[in-house]
Amino acid sequence: MTAAVLDHDSADAHEEHPTSLRIDSRKLAIWTFIGSECLFFAALITTFVIYRNSHATGPGPKDVFEVPLVTAGTAVLLFSSFFVVMALNGAQEGNRKKLLLWLSLTVLCGCFFVGMQVYEFTGFMHKGMGYSTNLFATSFFTLTGFHGTHVAIGTLWLGTLLKDAYKGRIPPNKALNLEIAALYWHFVDVVWIIIFPVVYLMSLFAK
């Protein structure tokens, strides 16, 4: 949420001279926020790892996880990272067509991923795994739910930028508006790069 607030918000009081680090404050701020988020997900992942075998009642990882579905979701998220750098490239070159094409693909990927998660969660419910069925379920839903919320916020953010781009409001000198959103989006992607093996593959592999 802080990330979204940073968009467009920079004190222009210092316009007359460059900033101390010769970098826009918004970019430094989004990196600071990402650094902070590392600890946010660290606490969530730790909790999941500690509790992943606590499923004395109700289904465990082997009863519910579906590798093909999650692999598809992982691929979508990875590709969306690629799409958003291409969109950024387009914005920096002033190529509106390129920007619009890749950015819409990114937003589409975001929607698809959230849809995948909703589908996955619904399936788990049908298999008798509710939020509080057991600790494995609770910590799984908490971790992936927070990640999904991040994806949803990122999708909304990129969606507003898509609208801006459509109206021609992202010329090359404002490409930074997209760049900070892209940085956030990539971070959400790298978190999934950790979650996919640690939460899915390792839990399934464990004895």
């Binding site: 970098i23 970019k27 990196w31 902070s36 730790t46």
Partner: peptide, 24 residues
């Protein structure tokens, strides 16, 4: 990009990994 961004991210990751490992 600027080195300072690398430091910001790397030091946060370092603390995160240390905390995860220690708790584990």
């Amino acid at each position: 990009d600027l080195k300072v961004l690398r430091y910001v991210f790397a030091s946060s990751l370092l603390i995160a990994v240390v905390v995860i490992s220690a708790l584990f």
